[in-house]
Write a protein that binds this DNA or RNA. Structure first.
Lengths: 124, 124
DNA sequence: ACCTAATACCTTCGTTGCGAAGATATCTTC
DNA sequence: GAAGATATCTTCGCAACGAAGGTATTAGGT
C-alpha cells in the first residue's frame, strides 16, 4: 500500500474500524465523518476498496440480502488495522507540527498569545 | 485550491508557516518534519509550489545570492495561512475519529479496555 | 397505475498530484 | 581534479481520485 494515505482512503478505513459495513453504508458514513464536507463518490469508493482488497487491508466479510437488496459487507483485516494505526500516528504528528507553527511556537499556548501580522486574521 | 490537501503539500505549507524558506531548505525541512519517512523530491516540490502560487497560497518572498548560489525564498500568504488552519482542523477531526474507533469507542479510554479480536494485536 | 426518491451495486473516463529521473550550475572538500 | 553538497528546474509516467452514468429493487406520493 502506498502511504501516505489520502483522505478518502483514510476515512474508509476509519469507518470500517467501527465494524463491518457495506458499500452504500460507507458512502453515508464517510460523508458523516467529514461532516458533509467530503461526499465520497461510488467511483472513489469501489476503486479504493479494490485497491485495499488487493493489498490485503480489507476483505469481504459476508453477503446479505436485506429486503431483496444485496448487501456486500467489507471489514478491516489485521493489516488494515495496523496501517490505520500507523497512518493515524503519522497524521497526528503532522497536525501537531502545523498547530505549533500556527500558534506561535508552543503547542499548548492559549490563543490569547501575541500573534504575528499573518497569523492575526482567522479566515481571510 | 483543491482540498483535502495531500501530505506533501500539507507539509510544505507547514514548513512555510514557520517563516520564509527556499526550495532546497523546504526539501530538508519536510524530510525532518516527517522524521525521514517522507523525502520530498524536486519534481514534487516545484510542481507543488507552482500550483500553490497559482492559487495565491504562497508567493516569492525574495531572491538572494548566498556564496554565489541563488536562493529563492517562498512565503505563505494570508490565504495560505487560512487554508493551513482549515486543513489542520479537518485533519485533527479525522485523527480523532480514527483514534476513538481504534481505542474501543471512548477517545480517552485507557488501553486496558477490552478489545475485539481484530484490535488485539498491535503491529501485524 | 405511474413517477420519483432512496437503497444498493458497479464501470468508464478524464484530471491531477505525486514520484522517479535527470539536467544545470556553483561552492567545498579531499 | 573528482566527488559531494548546495541550489535551481524540467520531463514523463502512474495511480488515486472525482464526475458521470448504468442497472436493479423497494417505498412513497399522487
Amino acid at each position: 500500500m502506498k502511504t501516505p494515505l489520502q483522505e478518502p482512503t483514510f476515512l474508509i478505513l476509519t469507518a470500517l474500524a467501527e465494524g463491518p459495513m457495506h458499500g452504500y453504508g460507507l458512502i453515508l458514513k464517510v460523508t458523516e465523518l467529514s461532516q458533509g464536507r467530503l461526499s465520497i463518490r461510488p467511483g472513489t469508493l469501489y476503486g479504493s476498496l479494490d485497491r485495499l482488497a488487493d493489498d490485503g487491508l480489507v476483505t469481504v466479510d459476508r453477503n446479505e440480502i436485506v429486503d431483496g437488496r444485496a448487501r456486500k459487507y467489507y471489514r478491516l483485516t489485521k493489516e488494515g488495522f495496523s496501517l490505520l494505526r500507523a497512518e493515524t500516528e503519522r497524521m497526528r504528528r503532522a497536525v501537531e507540527a502545523a498547530t505549533s507553527r500556527l500558534n506561535g511556537r508552543a503547542a499548548a499556548q492559549p490563543l490569547t498569545a501575541p500573534l504575528g501580522p499573518n497569523l492575526a486574521g482567522g479566515v481571510a
